[in-house]
Amino acid sequence: MTTSVIAKGIVPRISRGVGGRSRVALAVGGTLILAWAVIALFWPHLAPYDPVHQDPLHRFAPPGPGHWLGTDQFGRDTLSRMLAGARPVLQVAPLATALGTLAGTVVGLVAGTFGGLVDEVVMRVLDAIVVFPTIIAAVLFVALSGRSVTAVVLVIAASFTTIVARSVRAATLVEREKAYVEAARLRGERSWSLMLREILPNVTTTVLVEATSRFGDAIFAAATLSFLGLGQPPGSPEWGASVSDNRTWLQIAPWTVLAPALAIASLVVATALVADALRSRWEAP
């Protein structure tokens, strides 16, 4: 009793330092993500060159005036390719995250609320998906359906569904045992009403935390698939593909690899910062 009072009121938010840090993280991460989002939308206006335009006279030009981040083996402007590469990533990641989170939430809620045989079957199916390596699934899927944004989104979303479903199911199981759910059962509430009206509002924190964490993963996964040649058609200015194409020339033209690699890193780090800051906010009592 005494401790709960301390936790609730008497002891003030002493975590001012932590709160301040989380504000800074949110600001830095948020700004970075916003910047990349603007670039993804408006890169045709921002890029100094056409990202696929080849200039054989200026192959491997080092960074400098004219080409701020140099050129690659075909004389394409690295800066323009980096800016243009933001769009595919920021198309794939939010879509895959949203889809995976939604599907995972539904699956996890249903498994957790109904329990018993439903839970058993759903969880074994998820297990089966988990043990199947994502990359191999991706290779198979893309080989069968052809390269497209849709294919990449679906592959990433499927692998997220299993992760989100597990978390949501765990949170649902915790809530399901609480007295307010039992009280609803005593009143004769139906299972779907229990699930949507009683339990869902109390697992939203879990869902949001999952969604923000998954967003960073999605960026990384999209870049990885692209690196493996499973993204968009060859020649497109994708970050993963750019790293892959140029890594042969790493020693003579390191900028061609560093630029897209840093772009990936900055976006992943930014989402991680934002995710951490939001999580500490949501999960605070």
Binding site: K178, A179, Y180, E182, A183, L186, R187, P201, N202, T204
Partner: peptide, 23 residues
Amino acid sequence: RDARIRRAVQMVFQNPDASLNPS
């Protein structure tokens, strides 16, 4: 149990923090 019985038998739980939906 049918609706009439459920109406007739209700419960007040021990832990006040868990017995109401916090949302």
